[in-house]
Simulated scan of single mutants.
Amino acid sequence: MIAAAVFASGSGSNAEAIVQASALPCAVCLLVCDKPEAPVIQKAAGWNVEVFVCDPKTFPDKQAYEQAILTKLQDMQIEWIFLAGYMRLIGSTLLDAFANRIINIHPSLLPAFTGKDAIGQALAAGVKVSGVTIHFVDSGMDTGTIIAQEAVPVQPGDTHHTLHQRMQQIEHRLYPETIHYILTREGKE
């Protein structure tokens, strides 16, 4: 069984969807969180996964921070990383060690609306369609190779909350499906 880690910084709804997906060809063994007060940490108590809280403020630089995470990942023989609301750019320490084995989810149809608050960006731009993208992680901000996308119509009167809720319904299905596809394909190559 493939060993995987989920990285999250916030509430953890996508992390939870991955952990609870029944047909994945991997075992999520580790949650990595960069925020000691993040709600995902309490959620993870019921997931039967180890939680590794690694606060970047306690390290002298990004490389030292990522090296601490890498050591933990290597100790646990983690093979894949799934970012689920992890609000940090991944640096070369992790990118080099996990080349083409880090996947992210983003609440827009990339390349539109990269970075933080993509939903707010979409609403401010007045687009009629936004969506969800799952992509490989590279050194840029939401610039990696796109694996899957699904459109979400922006309805008249949508607020950040209502659009986010509809996007999450898609995310919670699409992310596990895409992980399954990638890991199954990887095993056949």
Results as ranks from 00 to 15, higher is better:
I78Y: 06
A97T: 05
K57Y: 06
G115Y: 07
E150R: 14
V152R: 05
A68I: 02
A21E: 01
V6L: 05
H161C: 00
M141C: 10
D117P: 02
S92V: 01
R185N: 06
Q63A: 15
I2L: 02
L183T: 14
A68P: 01
W47R: 05
L31P: 06
I90S: 09
P153N: 12
N100R: 13
Q67T: 06
G131M: 06
G157E: 04
D55E: 01
M1S: 10
P107W: 12
M167E: 15
L31Q: 07
N104P: 10
A151C: 11
I146Y: 09
A15R: 06
P176Q: 04
L89T: 13
R166A: 06
E16I: 13
I170M: 11
G91Y: 05
K116G: 00
V127M: 06
A99Y: 04
K62A: 14
E37T: 14
P156E: 12
A8W: 10
V154L: 11
Q169D: 15
A38W: 01
I18H: 04
K188E: 14
P56L: 01
E177D: 15
A122E: 09
V53T: 13
M167Q: 15
S92R: 13
P56V: 02
H160C: 00
T162C: 02
I179G: 04
G157H: 02
M87W: 10
F59V: 05
A124I: 04
Q77G: 09
